[in-house]
């Protein structure tokens, strides 16, 4: 595999993705801050409303990032224009992966840090941190799967299916975590307990996310032509 890449152009493509995503990103950040503010009220109704809104914002953020960066561009035949630029399929793949990770990663990290601050600085039990990180881990994995599918599959229907299915699996995950005593019991206490099941689930989420991205990069990078 030829690894020489056109870095300046990749950078421009990433900046282009970032700029096109500004509006949805701003809306997500505003909604996320509102959700964190609700959580910070430390009242039961505000906690339920805030946590629900936070999950909605995370899922919507992941879907919008994939949709803006890949699906919309496909509809507008942007690839045909990109092919006229001095970029290889590998350059394009790297730009899309980096752009996608940036547009998703910024709101994701802002909300992740906000959640950590909320849990540690309010009367909410600190043990909730592990539980929350596992949910964030799932959203990350769902995003990576959606991104990989969007890069691989042209069909809009299959892409929507992949986004909805992977993100909706957060519901069974929340139920599953509630069934595992080693995770659900400490979540109600003040100690942050990294039990074996919690570490195993988070590690699996991170590893699968990484493998999905690495496989996607390898699969597309080895192509000699765009089609």
């Amino acid at each position: 595999m030829k690894l020489a890449m056109n870095i300046p152009l990749i950078r421009l493509l990433v900046i282009k993705d970032w700029q096109l995503f500004q509006k949805p990103l701003a809306a997500h950040v505003l909604a996320g801050l509102f959700a964190l503010g609700l959580l910070g009220l430390a009242r039961p109704w505000a906690f339920y409303l805030g946590s629900l809104l936070l999950i909605v914002v995370l899922v919507a953020g992941s879907c919008f990032a994939v949709s803006t960066s890949l699906l919309e561009e496909r509809k507008q035949q942007t690839l045909a224009f990109v092919m006229s630029l001095p970029v290889s399929p590998l350059d394009f793949t790297v730009a899309k992966l980096a752009g996608g990770l940036l547009t998703f990663g910024v709101p994701f990290m802002v909300l992740l840090l906000g959640t950590v601050v909320v849990i540690l600085s309010t009367p909410l039990p600190d043990g909730l941190l592990v539980y929350s990180l596992l949910i964030y881990g799932h959203v990350l994995l769902a995003y990576c799967i959606s991104l990989a599918v969007a890069m691989q599959v042209q069909s809009e229907g299959w892409n929507i299916f992949a986004m909805i299915a992977s993100n909706l699996l957060v519901n069974p995950l929340i139920m599953l975590l509630g069934q595992i005593d080693a995770i659900s019991v400490p979540a109600r206490g003040e100690d942050i307990v990294w039990s074996l099941p919690a570490v195993a689930i988070l590690s699996a989420q991170l590893l699968l996310s990484l493998c999905t991205l690495a496989f996607t990069a390898w699969w597309h990078g080895r192509k000699a032509a765009f089609y």
Binding site: A26, L33, L120, S121, P123
Partner: peptide, 27 residues
Amino acid sequence: LPPTTGHLWFLYYLLLFGVLHWAGRAL
């Protein structure tokens, strides 16, 4: 006691308003 920003809260809010400033401009 939970950590607070103390009298430096204005810096925290300047950062927050900076984010809202950017969001308002983007929207």
